[in-house]
Amino acid sequence: MVKAEDTFLIQNKCGLHARAATVLAQLAQQFDAQITLYQDDKEAPGDSVLALLMLESSHGKQLRVCCEGPDAQPALTAIGELIAQKFHEDE
């Protein structure tokens, strides 16, 4: 099983709020991979908005993203880009 993981810094001002979490979950659902996000002692499946909101990832937090499955690498790359692009938000 292909695995890929990396840690990303939450850069947008609002953090992983409802809209950002929804965009991330929609992206995660596109890949054939099991995606799990970790922050501090909490973890969330990438395709669940509710679980992502429970991470309470604010600006400046480090989010570890683990992908497992055939699409692990492209999924990790896409999620990393989304976070780096501040979830397409202005600030």
């Binding site: 001002k13 609002c14 953090g15 992983l16 709020h17 409802a18 908005v49 509710l50 679980a51 909101l53 429970m54 991470l55 309470e56 990832s57 604010s58 600006h59």
Partner: peptide, 13 residues
């Protein structure tokens, strides 16, 4: 924003 995230997390929970 921090307070908003905290509320969302509590509601999601």
């Amino acid at each position: 924003n921090a307070e908003h995230l905290k509320t969302l997390a509590a509601i999601a929970d």
